[in-house]
Write a protein that binds this DNA or RNA. Structure first.
Length: 261
DNA sequence: AAGCGCGCCAACCGCAGGTCA
DNA sequence: TTGACCTGCGGTTGGCGCGCT
């Protein structure tokens, strides 16, 4: 499945990802975040383009990404959202925690469309008194959607299990779910000054030994390319401005843990 | 067993929009 | 204001896997 690995004219690898590449990307993003997708492959020791890395991370390596096993509730929700939003796969994906736009798009084309066609055909061949409307397909779609205008309890559970409150506006919800990283300011990152707040302590704990463990994933790049400002005591490289991917996950974890404290 | 066709899905491509200097 | 750069989105494609003949 997928594309055979090959190299483009710039010598960058294309096609299916190996587990070794996955490991490199996962390790790098979990540690440093995706501060710049274009530059990231170089730092992570991958001969891929940034876009490819981004896609791989978003669709497969990101934590909490669900693979396959769509429930009927999810299917109905996709149907309803597609009716409302059209081919806005990313917006649809934002309402389905753990699902990616690419996967939903594929699922739509391979399963749901087929299911609708089948239902449509069955509807047409059933003996009926009333007139069959011009677009039976659309009608079925609408009927299906109307049945699920109010989310059934199971769907509520799905939404409530999402990291964010369902009370958020769709745009907030969407942007929050699609941007799976948080930007941490310098003050939030300073942990050795002894004045750490609870949140920064929590963050420190969750991040673990980020500041003390050198990341040695990439042994191939030319270290002279990087300024000395990128060097820290541990002798490893990091970009000038850091985004912590999964910062949001971390944040939600912190929020979840908060009542226990 | 071999050949063929098709379904499925991972990944690519091109474009649009946002940001920044 | 503009152009370069980056990210994200949606459409499309390549090719593996599997069922059918």
């Amino acid at each position: 499945m997928g594309r055979t690995p090959s190299f483009d004219k710039n010598g960058r690898k294309k096609g299916l990802w190996s587990t070794e590449e996955d490991d490199k990307l996962r390790a790098y993003v979990q540690r440093y975040g995706h501060w710049n997708w274009r530059e990231l492959p170089k730092y992570a020791g991958l001969s891929r383009c940034g876009k490819s890395c981004r896609l791989r991370w978003m669709n497969y390596l990101r934590p909490n990404v669900k693979r396959g096993g769509y429930t009927e509730e999810e299917e109905d929700l996709i149907l309803k959202l597609h009716h409302q939003l059209g081919n806005k796969w990313s917006a649809i994906a934002a309402r389905l925690p753990g699902r990616t736009d690419n996967e939903i798009k594929n699922y739509w084309h391979t399963h749901i469309k087929k299911r609708l066609m089948k239902e449509n055909q069955e509807a047409i061949f059933e003996p009926k008194e009333q007139e069959i409307e011009a677009s039976q397909f659309e009608t079925n779609l609408k009927q299906r959607s109307n049945q699920i205008t109010e989310f059934p309890p199971k769907n509520r559970a799905i939404l409530e299990s999402a990291p964010l409150s369902p009370e958020l506006s769709s745009s907030e919800f969407s942007s929050s779910l699609t941007s799976d990283y948080a930007v941490l300011s310098d003050t939030e990152l300073v942990v050795e000054d002894g004045n750490s707040t609870n949140s920064s302590e929590l963050l420190t704990e969750a991040i673990g030994n980020f500041w003390t463990e050198p990341f040695l994933e990439d042994k191939s790049f030319n270290k002279n390319e990087f300024s000395s400002s990128n060097m820290v005591e541990g002798g490893f490289f990091y970009p000038d401005s850091l985004y912590f991917d999964d910062g949001m996950d971390l944040f939600y974890q912190v929020l979840q843990d908060f009542p226990k404290m």
